[in-house]
Design a protein around this nucleic acid. Structure first.
Lengths: 332, 332
DNA sequence: GGCGGGTCTGTAAACGATTACACCGCACGG
DNA sequence: CCGTGCGGTGTAATCGTTTACAGACCCGCC
C-alpha cells in the first residue's frame, strides 16, 4: 500500500505538505498542490484511516451493538442508523447477536479505539450494569433498554402506550376475550407491551385471564405456535394481540390452518408496523413505530453527544406510537 | 482514557511488559502478571484497537458495502455476515445505501486502513470498473455482482436456474399465460431472473409475450402496482412469477383487492424464500435462497483470502437454489 | 569459578498520519 | 535599508501500540 511518505518522496515535498493538500489545511502553492495531486492519483494513494484517527482522536465511526437479528425490523433499524450516520459523515461498526452481558461487554472492549461512541440496543440485558463497564468517557446511547440509566442517553419505544392503544381498539370493537402473545420473557419491550395490555383491560373493567396470556419470542414460528395453543383449549379468544407483527403473521397463518377466518372469527393485531404489514392478507391492524427513525435518532443523538463532549447532558426519550387500523380486526 | 503507559507506570513496569501480558506473548513472571492485571482492572484499561492495528497491520474488520436496504432479505444477509465474522474474530464495518459507483468508491476509500478486506454487494453497478479503483492489494469479494471479474472472488445466487425452476413448475401446472414482475432495471439479479423466465418458456415452446413482462423494483408497493397493471389490460395472466418475495406479497395483496383468489384464479410465485414466505396467506411457493449463507460465505471466503494473502487464488461461485412448493400456485 | 542458557524485563524503533513550530524568502511600508 | 508580516514549506513530536534486540539475573554444570 502506498503511504503518505511515498507520495511525498515522489513529489519531492515533505509529508507535511502532502497532508496539507489532503486536508485542505494550511497554505500550499497551486503548482505544488497540482503536482501532489497528480502523484497521489498515479500512485493510487488513499489516506490510512486508522493512522489518521490515532493522532486526531476521531474515528468518524460509531459502534453499534445489536441483539440477534431477525425479520424486517432490524433491516429498518440498521437502515435508519446508516442513513443518519452517512448524513453526519460517520460509519457504522456493527456487531450483533449479543444476547448476554459478557458478550456485549467484550464487544464493547473490542471497539475501544475504533469508534467515537457506542449505540447499544439491549432489550434484555440490564443496561445499568453494562454502562458501568464501558471504557470511561466514551459516549454511549441506549436503545430500547428498559430502565433509564442515569447519565446516559436513552431512546425507547413507548411500548406501554402503544399496547394500550391497540387493546383499547379491540375492546371498542366489542371484544372481551382478548389474548396476548407475549414477546421473549426477558425482553423489556415485551414486558412493557404486556403491561399496556393488562392496563387497557383493567381500565375497561375486564378481568385478567391468565390462560389468554401466552408466551412467544417475536418470531413468526412462535406466533404460529401460540395461536395453535390458544385454540387447543376451550376458552378461546375472539381477538389476539400479538406483541409484534411477525408473531401476528404467524398467528394468522395458524388460524388459516385451523379454518378460522380473520377477522370474521378472530381479530388479530400486531405491533411495529413493519412495511409488510399493509400487504398481509388481510392487511394487519397494528401499532405504528417509526422503526428507521429509532435508529436514526439514536445515531443523531450520539453524534451530538460526541460533538459536545463533556458539556453534553444526557436525556431520556420515548418514541411515540400510533394506531394503524387496517382490516385484520374488522370494524364496528 | 487510560493507555498502556498509565498501566505501566502504575504497575512499575515498562509498556512492553504490559503489552506482553495482554497478548500472552513472551514470558512474564506470575507476580508481575498479577500486578499488571490488577492495575489494568482498577484503571479500567482497554487496549486501543486503532493503535494496535496500526502496528500489527491487522484490523480484524471487514468492510461491507451494501445497496439500499429493504425488507427481510438484508436482515438475513447481515445476520449471516455478522455470525461468520464473529466466528472468525472479525467485525463488520457497514455502509449501505450505495447505489452508484461514485458512492461506492468513496465509501471504499473511507475504509482504507480500517478494514482487512472489502465485501461488496453491488447488484447494479458494473463491478469490474469498481475493482480497478480499490486501494491496491486490499482483498475484495463481490456478492451478486453480475459479471465475474477476473482476479476477484465472487459469489452470486444462481438466479437463472432458480427462475427456470419456478417457471417450469408453473408450466407443469398447466399455465401458459405466465407473467413476470421484473426487478429493478439495472439490477443483475433481476436481469438473470428474467433470462431464466424466458428460457423456461422457450424450452416449453411458449411464445414470449412482452405485455406479460412488467417492471418492478423489488418493493412490495411495486409488486402491488405491477399486478394492478397486469389485470387492467385484457390479456391477463393465469400465473405471476414475481422476481422476489416482497413483490409477490404486493401482487397477492393487489389480487385480493381485485377480488381474484390465489391460487384459484391466479397462481403467484416468488423468489428468495424469505422467512416470512411460509407464513403468508396462502403460503408462498418460491425459490429458496440460503440468504444468510450468502452473507456468511462471503465473509468466510474473504477471511480466507485475507489469511492467505498473496497466495490466494480467487474463484467464482454460485449459490444453488431450490424450488419450494407451498400453496400459492395450487397443485395439479 | 566461569560459562552456557534460560527466564524475565526494558529500550527504542516502527506503524501512517497530523500539526506546532521554525525557517526562508519576498513584498511592502516607513 | 530595515523591520514586519505572510505565504509556503520542512522538521520533528506525537498518537497508543507491538516487537526486535539486548541486557540483567539466576541456575546448574563442568
Amino acid at each position: 500500500m502506498t503511504t503518505i511518505k511515498d507520495v511525498a518522496r515522489e513529489a519531492g515535498v515533505s509529508v507535511a505538505t502532502v497532508s496539507r493538500v489532503f486536508n485542505g489545511s494550511g497554505p500550499v502553492s497551486d503548482v505544488t498542490r497540482k503536482r501532489i495531486e497528480a502523484v497521489a492519483a498515479t500512485l493510487r494513494y488513499v489516506p490510512h484511516g486508522g493512522a489518521r484517527s490515532l493522532i486526531t482522536n476521531r474515528t468518524s465511526t460509531v459502534g453499534v451493538l445489536l441483539p440477534h437479528l431477525y425479520g424486517e425490523f432490524f433491516s429498518e433499524v440498521i437502515r435508519g442508523m446508516d442513513q443518519a450516520a452517512q448524513r453526519h459523515g460517520y460509519h457504522l461498526l456493527l456487531s450483533s447477536s449479543h444476547d448476554d452481558r459478557a458478550e456485549i461487554e467484550s464487544a464493547m472492549r473490542a471497539m475501544r479505539g475504533r469508534v467515537d461512541g457506542l449505540l447499544v440496543m439491549s432489550p434484555h440485558v440490564d443496561s445499568s450494569a453494562l454502562v458501568a463497564n464501558v471504557p470511561p468517557r466514551l459516549p454511549v446511547m441506549l436503545l430500547n433498554s428498559g430502565s433509564a440509566v442515569r447519565d446516559v442517553d436513552t431512546l425507547s419505544i413507548d411500548n406501554e402506550a402503544g399496547a394500550r392503544l391497540v387493546v383499547r381498539h379491540l375492546i371498542e370493537l366489542g371484544h372481551r376475550r382478548i389474548a396476548i402473545i407475549r414477546g421473549a420473557d426477558d425482553n423489556f419491550d415485551a414486558a412493557e407491551r404486556v403491561r399496556g395490555y393488562r392496563r387497557a383491560l383493567q381500565q375497561a373493567g375486564i378481568p385478567a385471564e391468565p390462560s389468554l396470556e401466552i408466551g412467544g419470542d417475536f418470531t413468526e414460528a412462535s406466533g404460529h405456535q401460540a395461536a395453535m395453543t390458544l385454540f387447543a383449549g376451550d376458552f378461546t379468544p375472539t381477538a389476539i394481540f400479538a406483541s409484534n407483527d411477525s408473531m401476528a403473521f404467524g398467528a394468522m397463518s395458524a388460524l388459516r390452518e385451523l379454518g378460522r377466518s380473520v377477522p370474521r372469527d378472530v381479530a388479530v393485531a400486531g405491533f411495529d408496523d413493519i412495511p409488510l404489514a399493509r400487504f398481509m392478507n388481510p392487511p394487519l391492524t397494528t401499532v405504528h413505530v417509526a422503526i428507521a427513525e429509532l435508529g436514526a435518532r439514536g445515531v443523531e443523538t450520539l453524534v451530538r453527544a460526541i460533538a459536545r463532549g463533556e458539556r453534553h447532558v444526557p436525556g431520556h426519550n420515548r418514541l411515540e406510537t400510533t394506531l394503524v387500523v387496517r382490516q385484520s380486526c374488522g370494524s364496528r
